[in-house]
Computed example of a mutant assay.
Amino acid sequence: MNIAIFVSGNGSNCENIIRYFEADPDIRIALVLSNKPDAYALTRARRLHVPTAVMPKPQFGEKDKLLSLLADYEIDFIVLAGFLLYIPDFLVKAFDHRMINLHPALLPKFGGKGMYGHHVHEAVKAAGERETGMTVHWVNEQMDGGDIIAQYRTPLSPDDDVATIARKEHDLEIRYFPLTIRKVIEKL
């Protein structure tokens, strides 16, 4: 099973996933794709000898170009790990139930347009939530609207600031995202 990881930023989850599967005989991280040429995730992937590609936003919407790139790497499955572009319908259809996303909150709360990164954690804090967590879901045509595959939770204290909320949630991502990817792929 050849996986492509789509990223836009730092890539700590990307590196964690690559390391988790690096000795796996059945699952291979075949490509890390970013919409940003300066995404640190690309550096992390190259250091771990994983091929990388950059496809800026205008090109990402070009069906033939994107699907051709994925075919070149024989991609079977896509993992969105901090990828900030809207996924075009043609890609959703081509990878129906073969593309998952990580969202840094307990969907359906704090999802949708503008809800990414620190914006999510700020909204969680502002709402006075007693817990936060991460959601892994199938990607469909609706932003953060695909069926939920798994959720992991962590308690919050009223004293937790946005940085603490972000750290608690990120700890869940590092611990559970690779395990969830494995479970999903094993069921395919």
Score class of each variant (00 low, 15 high):
L48Y: 05
H121P: 06
R44N: 04
G9L: 03
I78W: 06
I174L: 09
H170F: 12
E22T: 11
C14V: 05
L85P: 03
A94C: 09
A81W: 02
A150T: 03
D38F: 05
M115N: 13
R167T: 12
L42W: 07
E74G: 06
F90T: 02
L67P: 10
G61S: 15
F83E: 03
N140C: 06
R46M: 05
Y152A: 06
R44I: 10
A45V: 05
L69Y: 11
L102H: 09
L179D: 06
N10E: 11
E129N: 07
N2K: 13
M115I: 00
S12L: 08
R46W: 03
P158Q: 08
T43G: 11
I78A: 11
F21G: 05
E74V: 12
L172N: 02
I78R: 04
G145W: 11
E141N: 07
F60Q: 08
V50M: 08
I149Q: 05
A23C: 06
V7R: 01
A23R: 14
P25E: 03
I174W: 00
L70D: 06
Y116Q: 10
K63P: 00
G82L: 02
D76Q: 03
A166Y: 02
A105N: 04
N13C: 14
Y40I: 14
R175L: 05
G117R: 14
D72V: 05
A126I: 02
E129H: 05
H103G: 05
P104Y: 00
Y20D: 03
D64E: 08
I3Q: 02
P88I: 00
V136C: 08
I5T: 14
R130D: 12
P58K: 10
D159Q: 13
N10R: 09
R47S: 09
I5F: 12
F177G: 01
E22I: 00
G145Q: 05
V120E: 06
M55Q: 11
G111E: 07
P25L: 02
P104Q: 01
I149T: 00
N2Q: 13
R167N: 00
D144R: 04
R98V: 01
I17R: 13
R130G: 02
F95N: 03
R46Q: 13
E74Y: 14
C14L: 04
V139P: 06
H118F: 07
H118A: 15
K187Q: 15
L102S: 12
G114F: 15
D26S: 11
L67N: 00
L33D: 12
E74R: 14
L106N: 10
I29S: 14
N35G: 11
H97E: 15
G61E: 07
M143L: 15
I181Y: 09
R182A: 01
D159H: 13
D24N: 15
L48S: 10
A4P: 14
E62N: 15
A123W: 04
D38A: 14
C14Q: 12
L33W: 05
I100N: 02
A150W: 00
H121L: 07
P88H: 10
D161L: 09
E173W: 00
I100M: 09
G82V: 03
P37D: 09
N16D: 08
G11T: 14
E186Q: 15
V139N: 04
V79H: 07
F177Q: 05
H137S: 13
E131Y: 01
G111C: 12
H97T: 10
F95A: 08
V184D: 02
N35M: 06
L91H: 12
L33T: 09
